[in-house]
Design a protein around this nucleic acid. Structure first.
Lengths: 211, 211, 211, 211
DNA sequence: AATGAATGAGAATTCATTCAT
DNA sequence: TATGAATGAATTCTCATTCAT
């Protein structure tokens, strides 16, 4: 009664495996909004447009739905590293690609990420999956910057902090937009460029001190 | 069974208000970990060391506990602005102060922030409160940077993006530490300095281009 | 998962009736162990190695399976009486035959008997069927003993009590072995002989008193 | 709607611990008739005249009710042995006492015994408790008879079989009456005396053979 | 004739909340 | 003021059974 069906079953033909997908989509959507407990099987079934019991024909129990959704987070290291391919002369383009790629990845997984964020303390298996995306992103970028530092292209310094700043920016924007529904008065593309410029300046500058 | 009392009342006089505080503290702690629904009145009462019904002598219902907790988020604009007091020559010190002050504020409010994060979609009144802290922080810093740009101290540009990057960094670290229990291999103080340096370089550099 | 198929159909022709038997066998086995409710159609189908729905092609509903099983209890009076054929000089041999025959009959019907025992109060039609075996056994023996008493071969007395004792002994042993899985430290054959001896002594003795 | 309340709550005073007892009584009664699964918490609560949820304030879960009921079966060896106190001259009186005592014990525990009988295969802890009563009864009597045999009062022989016959008789009668609601055309007292006489004759007779 | 998908009725259990003391 | 007992509403899940293929 809150929301209409999630998908068009509209008939009775050819929705064989579709039911399972509808359930997953409904659960994902609801859990991302209401949390695991808030996404009751009744609400899931209503949103999916199926009978409540049908859920249990497709999944052993409610927890199994979550586990299935969690499989949607796969390791993204390789993909991120691809965006950083190139030598120092291309750093700026690489950073831009990286920003876009990372942000897009967050958006594509926004529901499962929200679920992880919400359920971090309730479902132990969630934590490691949850940390993988943001932390991997910091690591991959940090490693690349470190490499350039080692090659003398960048002044020695805080590659890790720089990577963290860069990644944080997009994660934060993502959270603001999709969790808090907050318009940051930012066009994403604009943010990618601005942040890239600031970071480029920040790490190629010459006024570093400490350590 | 899981956790001991949050603090025994160990006396006998004037516990009226103390009981209320114990309930609030227990609820805050549990909701921050388990969410609103996960923090059952039974668990709250056990952690608070009071009878379950006692909760309802102090609060109309469970929702009222949350509302009370939300009052704990007050506007922090004034305090943040104080940390940015000074002229351009002190910018670096200002940024460091700002970073420390902002991060400390997050930590001091970590439970209620987690609750807001978790319940953003369930309790409408949460959203505006929740957005206040991070967004205010961006705004305040952005305004100050803009001011310096207007005064010619900083090249025209992306004050808002810069502020966002700076603030994001600490919010992200805060989330990683307190939500995901992820050690970022960062000492906070080190991060404050590194991020400040990078930002200083980033915004005072001379290679800006973008529109 | 618990038990393998009750028997593969290993062929392809004429399994129609066989499927039905497999279902009956599985249901009998499960109901004897777990009771009517504990024998779910799913478990029955798994043990029978058929699809759950197939059950309902062969039986109107689950209750009909039980009814079919109950038909397996037929009157045994004739058979029991056959074991008691003979004159008084053969009493001991007759008793031995009777014991063996009765016990064997119990064992052959152990599953349906257990079902009756378990479901006595749930399925009204069960009770009369259930009582038929043990009570008939007492009656038939009692009649025979009475006959001998009337002929003067046995002292007047408690033919019915004697028959009850005799029959009880084997029913009790049967229950202990097949319901409680209790080894009574008895070989059945030994028990048949011992009980026969005791009964023979008991009813041919000369020290009777009671009214 | 099937049965009225089990006990007179009729007011609201002084039924503090009584509620628990009412639930236990209702559960015992229903489980003895319908089995564990057949005794739904709803039916129990209705028969007990309490709200369904109240059951779970008094018992962790349904299984805990059964466990509590099972505690009602305590070791009866001592009591049975008391009934067999005396020397050989009193054997007949002892047997009578024993029959009465054993039968009374069965009747007093009739509900829990029926539950055990029904659930023997479903609840593993039931089996050992269940076997204790009947087997102990056989053992105790068998030991006493053996003792008399060793003292030369009784001919060497099948004390165990004799004990089994005796005990079986009453257990069988008990089952017939309380499980199958079958009138055996027996007054219990008459059966005690008849069975005692037959056993006395049976074991003191002189026509034993084998071993 | 057999099966995979779907479902209504009902099961045990949890939870926030009220009542009486 | 605080508490133990009680409860209605809702939740996850099971089961027998039907439908369409």
């Amino acid at each position: 009664m809150d929301q209409p069906d999630i998908g068009p079953s509209q008939g009775g033909r050819g929705e064989e495996q579709e039911t399972r997908e509808r359930i997953l989509a409904a659960a994902s959507q609801l859990m991302a909004k209401k949390g695991y407990k808030g996404a009751t099987t009744r609400k899931i079934s209503q949103l999916a447009g199926v009978n409540e019991v049908t859920i249990f024909r497709h999944f052993k129990n409610k927890e199994a739905i979550l586990e299935e959704l969690l499989k949607g987070i796969v390791d993204i290291r390789q993909q991120l590293e691809n965006d950083l391919h190139g030598d120092f002369s291309e750093l700026k383009q690489m950073l831009l690609r990286y920003a876009r790629g990372y942000y897009q990845m967050l958006v594509e997984r926004k529901e499962i990420l929200m679920i992880c964020m919400i359920e971090a303390d309730n479902h132990p298996e969630v934590i490691k999956l949850f940390s993988s995306l943001p932390m991997t992103a910091v690591e991959v970028l940090s490693n690349k910057l470190q490499e350039f530092q080692d090659q003398g292209h960048l002044p020695k310094g805080d590659a890790c902090a720089a990577a963290l700043m860069f990644v944080s920016t997009f994660f934060y924007s993502f959270m603001a937009k999709y969790r808090v529904n907050l318009s940051l008065n930012f066009q994403e593309e604009q943010l990618f460029e601005d942040a890239t410029n600031i970071l480029m300046n920040g790490i190629t500058g010459n006024t570093h001190s400490h350590r």
